[in-house]
Design a binder for these strands. Structure first.
Lengths: 220, 220
DNA sequence: AAAGTAATGTTGACGCTGTTACGTTAATGG
DNA sequence: CCATTAACGTAACAGCGTCAACATTACTTT
């Protein structure tokens, strides 16, 4: 009877349009604080409060961007392992892609991992949680496959091992991206050392986990 | 001839007073965005632009808080190794203290490491750079001492080894603090595994640096 | 003691922000 | 034709960082 909704399709399309503009501003100016809903809207030829028809508030918009960023890093990682059949190579290429991608896009990386204020919002976003899970799954799958083939030790379950690798890669990237310490050019030389250290360490980790009996773990 | 500066002492004292108030707000409300110079000043019984007599802008104030945070983590680490003579124990206690401290104060931790926008300001702050260096030095000294005693392998110089350990600890804490993934309570069980992995990995690192000569690597 | 001067403090203003409330338009089902 | 209702625009509020102009100190020099 009334004026019908914008066929949900068009609506989502417009949402994406706003997100595109937001992402553009984000990438160019850098940082989520460079994003202004007002500026965003006026640049799109809309009134300054138009975004509120598509997003409850700024946090929701930024959160959508965050999900996009996770989709991107997932794609980077997936792309890095196509064509590689050896889990060993896959893992190495995966880590390299992750680190390279993160270092190449500091603000995007910060968007994903440097958000502390939006914790509750992020927890409620199904989309974001799914994106995160899928990204981590890339790692988990590679490790699981490697374990199945007998290339990787089975002392640690794939999920925990993925966490450990992510910790290593993220520790490196996040420190570097935030300009901490002065590892400078030597970072490149640190990467293989770090990976190797984790790899070697985990192979001997049975002694470590022996002291800490493994408890069942669930994901999600 | 003219009125001399507030005996620099008093001036610094007042500066610290403002910083105290800022730190209080920061700890209670959480996050640097909770800090408002205007609110801060009025709460101190001053006019809303008074802080500008002591800080060039908000970034400078926040940066001072950041230096404080680094001083704090340094103290935590130093305190963790007093009385311990075995480098092995020192390193373990050091890592434990770092991780415990970080997890106990997420916002303070984020203040130190999640700052991407204030990179240039941070680079110019001598005070901050000194605080960072001193914090890292705690780690470097322990490792160097351990190497001198023959407890730790000498394959990697103390500074690089410190960087690696920091990467590990920071990777863990920062992921956890930002609510990434769901390592939940099991994080504590991850800690010894991680440390063990790094320890063991570094012991075999001489093979690592050999197998992967640092010459490749292109960037996007 | 008076004057001069620079450090310190206050007020007003600018331009920006996120956000809400409210008025306006337009399209469709009855 | 018209009422209903989504979509959109405008006005307004409260807050922010920041600066410039002004007032107030309090000390040093004469």
């Amino acid at each position: 009877m009334p004026r019908p909704k914008f066929s949900d399709d068009l609506r989502a399309q417009k949402r994406e349009l706003i997100l595109d503009a937001a992402m553009a501003v984000f990438e160019k100016e850098g940082g989520e604080h460079a994003i202004s809903l007002r500026r965003l809207a006026t640049e799109l030829g809309l009134s300054y409060s138009a975004p509120y028809r598509y997003f409850a508030d700024k946090q929701e918009l930024v959160n959508a961007l965050r999900a996009r960023a996770f989709r991107w890093i997932e794609a980077e990682m997936r792309e890095a392992i196509v064509g590689l059949s050896e889990p060993e190579q896959q893992l190495e290429s995966l880590a390299a892609a992750y680190i390279r991608g993160g270092l190449a896009h500091p603000h995007r990386y910060a968007l994903m991992f440097f958000a502390l204020d939006q914790l509750e919002v992020a927890k409620r976003s199904i989309e974001l949680k799914a994106a995160k899970r899928d990204a981590l799954d890339v790692c988990t799958q590679v490790i699981a496959a490697g374990q199945a083939r007998g290339d990787f030790p089975r002392a640690i379950d794939p999920l925990t091992a993925s966490h450990l690798f992510w910790i290593g890669a993220h520790g490196l990237v996040s420190l570097q991206v935030a300009g901490q310490f002065v590892m400078g050019r030597d970072v490149k030389r640190l990467v293989p050392t770090l990976i190797q250290a984790l790899r070697t360490g985990l192979e001997h980790a049975d002694t470590a986990v022996k002291t800490v009996p493994a408890k069942e773990k669930r994901h999600a």
